[in-house]
Amino acid sequence: MIAAIGVMCTMALGADEATTARLLTAGPTLAPGTPLAVGVEIAPPNGWHTYWKNPGDSGLPTTVEWVLPKGWKATALEWPTPIAFEADGIVGFGYEGKVVLLASVVPPPNAKPGEYPLRAEVTWLACKDGCYPGKATLTAKASIGGANLQSPDAKILQTWRTRVPATPLPGARARANAEGWSLSWTGPAKDGPPRFFPDQPATVDHAALVGTSSGGQTTIFLKRSDYLQGSPKRLRGVLAFRDRAFLVDVPIEQATKQEVNP
């Protein structure tokens, strides 16, 4: 099945439409038990996009599967703040152009000096007017006990690190209402209404977002997706302003009366 997609992909992609992928490491050298920053760079041609961990209404998330030496571990993938792209009423979440997805690989504390191969099996879906699947086996080397060298990619990894949301939304509160949830926080809306990216598919209706602001608090209203089953206990995702993004991971307070979104 995968092979069939691969064949189709080669036929469908012109040379100018090819997406490239690369494994970046901050190394090559590291100490036993010390994490090494790594990243998977996916670079589709101009105007093409790939997808966030929740792709939105359509698309597929990029996947990374690590194949590491025995005893080595990789941390969970960290995703830079996505953008939303809309086509004919269908809203996708992801990255236009190049993105670097970040992680760390950690050798075991008793790792011996030497060179170690790192491998990442990566799949993605690149879309513009149409979509093309891609996959790649990416490799890099890490060494333990050598001279303390940094890779030129270390700077690139640091830059992308600043684009991964890490600060919790100040004073965040989520409350259920008849149509979905309200999310409020302490502070202004900053340059127009922000966009909420839910961690999980089928949570929020991606097309709707209204904001109000009063008394130092800002509230936005999130409409429950038609596809959501059951009632989530927490609201999880990223709230992105024009130039900053915050993490949201708060319990959902249940409504005391039948409130509706304005």
């Binding site: 359509s58 269908i90 996708g92 007017d129 979509c131 997706s225 038609d226 596809y227 089953q229």
Partner: peptide, 10 residues
């Protein structure tokens, strides 16, 4: 109901 997945309809 479940969230459909695939390419956006053109």
């Amino acid at each position: 109901k479940s969230q459909p997945y695939g390419c956006g309809i053109k």
